[in-house]
Design a protein around this nucleic acid. Structure first.
Lengths: 209, 209
DNA sequence: GCAAGGCAGATAGCGTCACTATCCATAAAA
DNA sequence: TTTTATGGATAGTGACGCTATCTGCCTTGC
């Protein structure tokens, strides 16, 4: 198919497709002439995937490219490729390194140890979590920390369900795809559900008083 | 205190404080002359709060302003103000309205009904969730939907814990503050914990095979 | 009392990001 | 044979979150 059909099938405007091609989110089509190329189903899929990561998952173009690259990399049989794809999805940030930060880092390490989680030191989620906890401390939201165990418990159960479900898929390619998509879009799903449940609970609470 | 100390206390550069003042994220100081103003503890707190919403919560300046405005609004005794503050934190987006979208909207309604959640139709999380589910459908990630109940269950338990903890606070101002901060920063905490737990579970799974 | 520096407020500028528009030579479609 | 579409290159756009500069005034240290 040509670019117009690719655009129609995915809902992505042609100039945007060209941009994604330039940025390497979508591989080039098969050239059939100086100014002609053919695209296939793989391109449709890849384009939909790229859009989902950027639009729903909120990834930057650079992060999405990296995640997609790892996801489709040949050495995917090396098992840590999937983990690296996850890492690529956490954008780097600068952290304010004060006492609250040191404390938060220690707290994260402790939590991981307590849960017996086996997590590499390089996992960027460690820093992101520490930053969030440090922020809460700086805002004197101390009672939030009572909830941390409950959060961790919850996260663990979710992860168990997710990994179990995804492991039922046969091929590794398909597993890698699911991990990336579920991570990116799953954040949104979970956050939305949490907001809905919060509204319900607070409505009931206020009604009872 | 003057602006230099405000900057020192919060770690926010002076030009940025001036920008936030212009944008209404932080109220003006008390004027003591044509070009002098005094800031107090309230300004320190408000500034830290604004920074947290923008940096950790990822809110736009406009969303943060709205959330802060509602959070400190006089009519906070009207109970739905807190809910509105939540709504302000979900950025608006455009949705692709195809069959997958209609299906997803119905799915969300069904889920809410099944759970017995009392949620206003205006809650923007409904649309956000529908969009995420529609995206997963378009990517043929059908097995994800097996997890939805588990996600909803999880979200409900989390919300129950959160509301219970926050309700222990005495004054409504403090409750409103916690709701906004916990919503914004809590998303990050939960997402990070989920990633950490995922790495653990997948490490164990791969090791066993 | 007086120079040096800080301050509020206004205005303009900057850098990044994710597109979007234009142009060209060529190729396909009507 | 017009007309439209295409790939690739290059340049432009608009939003966003700051950041820099300027001006007239005030505070501070000597």
């Amino acid at each position: 198919m040509r670019i117009a059909e690719l655009s129609r099938r995915t809902g992505v405007p042609i100039p945007t497709i060209k941009y994604y091609l330039r940025e390497g989110l979508v591989p080039a089509g098969e050239r059939t002439g100086p100014n002609q190329a053919q695209y296939g189903e793989a391109h449709v899929k890849r384009l939909k995937l790229a859009r989902a990561l950027v639009e729903v998952g909120g990834l930057s173009i650079a992060s999405a490219r990296e995640a997609l690259r790892l996801m489709f990399s040949a050495g995917l049989s090396e098992l840590d490729t999937i983990g690296k794809a996850q890492y690529a999805m956490t954008p780097a940030r600068e952290y304010m390194e004060d006492e609250a930060w040191d404390e938060a880092v220690a707290e994260v390490d402790e939590l991981i140890a307590k849960r017996g989680w086996r997590v590499k030191p390089a996992n960027p989620a460690r820093r992101t979590l520490a930053d969030a906890l440090a922020t809460l401390r700086r805002l004197d939201q101390d009672d939030y920390f009572e909830l941390l165990d409950s959060y961790a418990e919850t996260a663990e159960r979710l992860a168990a369900d997710e990994i179990e479900t995804v492991a039922r898929r046969g091929d590794l390619d398909s597993v890698a795809e699911a991990v990336v998509v579920w991570t990116a879009v799953g954040d949104t799903v979970l956050a939305s559900l949490r907001r809905l449940a919060q509204e319900d609970k607070s409505t009931r609470l206020l009604e009872g008083s």
